[in-house]
């Protein structure tokens, strides 16, 4: 992992920034989110994919692409979480003044 991070830090940083932006936007975005049921299915899918990657079931290039995708997705999620939390913090600080 450390090797991959050093090799592709650009793409990983891109995912993280994308996540930050998406998290920042999502706080003030109107409209429907993903339903609970869907979240469960997606979470299950993520678990299956992580398990497949961890057990190194998928060989060759597909295995590498899966690893790459999962790392980028994980950083995206981290970015989203950080972005949402930051935006929420900013919004809640400015709300009493308004």
């Amino acid at each position: 992992m450390a090797f991959l991070a050093s090799f592709f830090w650009g793409w990983l940083l891109g995912s993280l920034l994308l996540g930050l932006a998406m998290g920042w936007i999502s706080i003030v975005q109107h409209g429907e989110g993903v339903s609970k049921k869907w979240k469960r299915w997606l979470a299950a899918l993520a678990v299956v994919l992580v398990a497949a990657a961890a057990s190194r079931l998928i060989p060759g290039r597909f295995g590498y692409w899966l690893d790459l995708g999962l790392i980028m997705f994980a950083l995206y999620l981290c970015g989203c979480a950080a972005g949402s939390w930051l935006r929420d913090w900013v919004v809640s600080r400015s709300a009493p003044a308004a």
Partner: peptide, 15 residues
């Protein structure tokens, strides 16, 4: 909030 994170997945997939 995570329910509203999905639109970013589309550019992420492209990336």
């Amino acid at each position: 909030w995570s329910g509203k994170w999905w639109p970013g997945v589309i550019p992420l997939v492209i990336l």
